[in-house]
Each structure stands twice: as structure tokens, then as C-alpha cells.
Design a binder for these strands. Structure first.
Lengths: 356, 356
DNA sequence: GCCGCGTACTGTATCGATACAGAAACTGGA
DNA sequence: TCCAGTTTCTGTATCGATACAGTACGCGGC
């Protein structure tokens, strides 16, 4: 009897139920949904009408996906819990870009956030997707192993670059070097860096040279290297440049970073931040202390999010949306070079000027 | 031979492949992944080791989901394309709240955005999920039909209320009435309303009484009714209150709305907006015109997003996170009353004052 | 030595659909 | 009239796993 799809008490309505009810084959009912050209319009209408009456919910997604071999969705792997990710405008830009590509393609977007404690990455193992986009993961994160095990198409955005996987990002070292050079060229000598997370351990405070050397977030590592190069060329001793580290990437963290840096004696005359959001926090810290920008302190951001223009913040422009579009194109249609470095650009606004 | 899982040329590695390779049953391999207590630790290690060597990606999610009858994800249905949704801080708050609940539960979050043109809602039909959360949908949207057809648990957030489905929201009528009463109590008589979308047609401009009467977004409809009630009680003729409509819910739209309203002659002395984001735009329009707030014009927002406090905006506080938590609780563990009206509260700040 | 019982593993049926090959009915042209 | 060529529908095999019942075996107690 199991083959007989007549709905038992509480039973589910399946293709078979419908087929039996109408006296047609299961295949024909399936075709009514998936290949309308395979049957007459009249029969198709009859089937859809019966489906409506019997309460057939349409082809079961898991069954269809199993048989077809496609899931119709891509997985977006994010460090940071989702709540924080949504609070970071650069990340939001990126999400917008991904969505702009998946939506018209009729492909779902499955969010796979990874908390710091989550070492098993089970969500990844069980995700019904056709490919993964990894967004800003540290070196050696277990999620990377889990993703590779799935043997599906993968693309990495921003970090890590080391994995030998298709990659989209910018030349972080050159970008941050140019941000640093900008303030050095203006004549600043007491500069400081407000770094984004160096390692995935939630540390919020000074990042001494040992910690810098052990950086597991490649983008942060590269940017620090860029700053160091700029200092070297300008004859500024990198060892004397204070570096503070912030996580997560949000206003409050930047505020704390700003307080730490601006509380130093002697006070830095320029602060180069690794994100606009951190820079906004630094600007607020400066306001708290009654410091004027750029007269008393110059501030450089990174990302050029929408609010940066409004805040008149000098920053490095990069496009999260463009990165997302490139990554999505690769995952959806396998198109494009495997790895891309997108352009970045220094945008000089009013938050930087020569030291007093 | 098909039953034989030995990997053919280019063939996939399945449970059967592993089982054959090790000389154990398929069930045992399955248990190694899903029910570790069913076999000895030693055998389990041997199986996992072989899996590693043969490149077995773990249980196929679609197959597992089909057999188990659960998808391990919930679907979040949003109107507006995702790009806009992420740009609206109230929506982002809501997303944060949903994520905060699904993440620890190990449940995926599948985003299902619906563009205005998408009348088939195919993404919903094919979504591999165990339940749906509908966020701010207009009456009669085809997505609602598609969701109901799936016969899965559903909860509606904010709109529409008419569907007879479990619901989470606030008393929109009372909330907007109190916002309107606030400015009326301050003595304003020439007031105006900056409404959120009235219908799902992308209209951006005046919403005359005919359009108000045909509102398909229930929350907007209720809020307008609340404003009307407040006016009635205060003896202000509702017909003389200009109402402008904005979509999408973003700063630019609010700016346009503000320009329209503040360009009227006589100029309104108070503007009540249906979101903080719109109110921010109105504030900018006032700045453009050299108007002082609240001396020349009072502005009220709605939502109390984080930026409202910073902007000193009088607003109605509601918690997107709380709504999300309630909705998620219902979908994940079927707990809680089916329908909830959460509290709202008028938060008086510096953007409102008596008319000059 | 036999029974009872728990642990470790196996075998078969099944989840709900789609692919593909084939049968049946219909079409049109020589 | 007959046959090739379509069009329309059917039947069977299969996607890759899990549920559940059953077998085999080890061990303590009477």
C-alpha cells in the first residue's frame, strides 16, 4: 500500500496522491509543475485545479533538490554573529551587492553566521546550497575546512587569501599604505593606527608587535604591513607607532580606540583607521576631548561608506557592492577570472590636514 | 550495479561508497554522523578517517532533509528588494533579532526578497524551510498565497493582520495617534503627515483621500486612521492635512517628502513621519530651507532607531528586535501566544516644541 | 547450561520527487 | 492506405540518506 498515495489519516499530499486521484501518472503531475510544455494546457489546468482542492503544496523542495542535484541557493559564511554583521555598513553594502545578484536569478541566500565559539561549523555541513561565499574569515578558521569538505564552488571575499581559492578583494597593503602616506605627506610624524581585529579572539586593546606578528586576519596583517612600509619610507620608526585593535567593527569600538589613542602623551596628531565606522568612533572621542579635526588631530577612515561623505571623512574608497557582484557572478554562472583585485582610491576630505 | 556505491569515474562519494569500502553497512556509516552513540568510538573513528581519505562530504543535506522531514532553516519573506531592506535600520534591527534567535539554534536563515514585479513568488514555492516569517507584506500579495500553499508554520510581523495568521506587531493606530496628539497638544494646528508606502506600486508623492482609502499596507492604513482620530478629537479638519507618501523607506525619500511638505504655503508647523528614516530626510529638508527645529517646524519620527537619539528626534519607540524574538520563538519551538501586540511608547526629545 | 538483557551492527523500506526510455495516439504526406 | 514523425503520457530506476525492526553476540545470575 505504501506506493498508493491516497491520503491516509493525517497523511501528506504528494505527487502520487494527486496522480492517483486524477488517474494519471506521477510523472505527468510532476511535468505539470516542472515542464509545462510536456502536457496539454487542458490537462495541466485540471492537475493544478485538483492540486488546489487537495491541498498539494507543490513539489517538495528537498525531494526535488535531491533528484535534480541542485539546491537553488548559495551560502554566505560570515564571521561575527549576524547581529554585528548587519550593524557594519561595509558588510551591509556587501550583502546588498550579493542580494542584487541572487535575487533576479531566483537563487536563495542562506546566511551562515559563525560565532567565535562555533568550532564545528555544523551549519555549513548541513547547508542545502550549491556554493559558498566566504566573507572575511581569519586564517585557519574551522569553517574553511568544513566548506572545503563539501566540495562545492567557493569564493573568498577579502580574507583569507592564503587558501588558494578564487578570491575577490583589494590590495589591502597598498591601500592602507596610501592612507598612511597621506598623513605622512601632510607632515605628521606622531601617527597612530586604529586597527580592525588582528585575531579572532575578541581582544579589544593595544596590539603590540608580538600580536601584530601573530595576526590571523590577513587583511589586517597586510594593512599593518602597508602602514609599516609607509613609515619606513618616511623615516618614522614603526616601533613607536601605537596600534590599537578593535572588535567588532562598530562605532562603540572606535570610540574606545579613539579614547585610548587620544589619551596618549604625547598625543598622536593623526590617526589612521581600518574602517570608517572605527573612524567615526575616533571622531567622537576627539569631540569628547574638545579636540578639533583636522587642526588638532587628523583622521583617516577606510571603506568610504555612505556616511563618510556626510561626516567629511578622508578615507580609502573600496566597493563592497562591486566585490559582491563579482563573487556572485562567479558562483551563479561560473563566470569571470578566478581571482580579482578590485581598485581602491584615496578620497581626501576635510578630516585630514597638516599638523598644527 | 547501481546499488554498489564504489566510486565510478567522476562518481560521487556517498554513504554507500564508504560502507562498501569499509565492509560495514550503510546504516552504520550514517550512525557515525547522526547517532554517534550507536556504534563504538573505535569504529566511528575508523569511518570518519576513511571519509576523510575518500573525500566524503558528509551526509547530503537534501537527502537528509527529505528523509528526516525537516529542512533546518526558516524563510524570511521581505517585500522590497534586499538591497533596500538592508538600508532600513528598522528592518536591520529586525534581522538582527531574527538572527539572534536562529543562530544559537543552529537553524539557517533563508532570505526571500520579493520584488514588486515578482508575482509568482517561486522562491517561496521552492524554499527548503520549516516555516516562514512574513515581514511587512501588503494585503493580497501573491507571496501570501504561495506561503499558505506550503502548509508550514507561518508568522506575520507588522503586516498584514487580515490573514488570520499568528501575528506580531504593535497597535499602529494608537501609536501614530499618540504621535499626532503630541504635536496637537503642543498647540500645532497646521500639521502634515509623511507616510510610508500606502500601496505596493512605488508611488512617491501626494496621497490624496482616494489613495488613502485604497491603502493596501495595513500598518500605514491604521496609522493614518490614528492620525485622523487625533485630528478629529482636536478639531482639526483631516481633509486639510497634507499627506505625502514615500517609498522606499530611506533617507532620500524622506528628503523629497520634506521638500514637498515644507514647500507648501502655508507651511506646516509640524510634520509627523511614519519612520525615523523619513524623519531624518525631513530634518535635512528643513536644514536646506534654513528652518530651525523645533522653532520653525516640529518633526516626529517612528521606530526609535539608534540614530534617533543622536539626532534628538522625538519618536515612537517600538522594538524590531523584540518582534523578531517573538516571531522566532514561535517558529522555532512553537512557543508563545499565537498573536501578540507589543508595547510602543512616545519618546519626547528636542525635535518637537510649541509652534512659534 | 540456560535465560534474560543490553550493546553493536545489519537489512529493508521509505522519504518525494525527476530523468529517461518507451508506448500510445495523432498528424500529415506520398 | 501506410509509414515516418510528433505529441502526449506512462513506468521504472534512481537521487542519498534515515527509521525501525531484527540479528548476533557478550555477560551476569540462578
Amino acid at each position: 500500500m505504501p506506493k498508493d498515495g491516497e491520503r491516509g489519516a493525517g497523511g501528506r499530499v504528494t505527487l502520487q496522491t494527486l496522480a492517483d486521484h486524477l488517474g494519471v501518472s506521477r510523472t505527468t503531475v510532476s511535468n505539470a509543475y516542472s515542464r509545462p510544455d510536456q502536457l496539454t494546457a487542458k490537462l495541466r489546468r485540471r492537475i493544478l485545479k485538483a492540486a488546489e482542492e487537495l491541498g498539494y503544496p507543490g513539489p517538495h523542495p528537498a525531494a526535488r533538490s535531491l533528484r535534480r542535484g541542485r539546491a537553488g541557493a548559495i551560502g554566505l559564511v560570515l564571521t561575527e554573529t549576524l547581529p554585528y554583521a548587519f550593524g557594519d555598513p561595509y558588510a551591509v553594502n556587501f550583502l546588498q551587492g550579493i542580494a542584487a545578484a541572487t535575487e533576479p536569478a531566483g537563487v536563495g541566500l542562506l546566511l551562515l553566521p559563525l560565532s567565535r565559539e562555533d568550532t564545528t561549523a555544523e551549519a555549513i555541513t548541513g547547508a542545502a546550497v550549491d556554493g559558498f561565499c566566504l566573507f572575511s574569515l581569519p586564517d585557519g578558521h574551522p569553517a574553511l575546512t568544513a566548506v572545503l569538505r563539501r566540495r562545492l564552488p567557493v569564493i573568498v571575499v577579502d580574507e583569507p587569501r592564503s587558501a588558494g581559492l578564487p578570491y575577490v578583494g583589494i590590495d589591502d597593503r597598498a591601500a592602507f599604505r596610501s592612507a598612511t602616506e597621506h598623513v605622512l605627506d601632510l607632515g605628521h610624524r606622531r601617527i597612530a593606527v586604529a586597527a580592525y581585529r588582528v585575531r579572532f579572539d575578541g581582544h579589544d586593546g593595544w596590539a603590540d608587535s608580538a600580536r601584530q606578528a601573530g595576526a590571523t586576519f590577513p587583511a589586517t596583517r597586510e594593512r599593518l604591513a602597508g602602514a609599516r612600509e609607509a613609515c619606513g619610507r618616511a623615516g618614522v620608526d614603526w616601533g613607536s607607532v601605537p596600534v590599537t585593535e578593535s572588535a567588532p567593527n562598530e562605532h562603540e569600538s572606535g570610540l574606545r580606540a579613539g579614547r585610548r589613542l587620544l589619551g596618549l602623551d604625547p598625543r598622536p596628531t593623526a590617526i589612521v583607521a581600518m574602517s570608517d565606522v572605527l573612524a567615526f568612533g575616533v571622531l567622537e572621542a576627539a569631540r569628547e576631548l574638545g579636540l578639533r579635526v583636522p587642526e588638532n588631530v587628523s583622521v583617516v577612515g577606510f571603506d568610504d561608506v555612505a556616511a563618510a561623505a556626510a561626516a567629511d571623512l578622508t578615507t580609502i574608497r573600496q566597493s563592497g557592492k562591486e566585490k559582491a557582484a563579482t563573487a556572485a557572478r562567479y558562483l551563479l554562472i561560473g563566470e569571470g577570472p578566478e581571482s580579482v583585485l578590485l581598485p581602491h582610491e584615496l578620497v581626501v576630505r576635510g578630516s585630514t590636514g597638516p599638523p598644527a
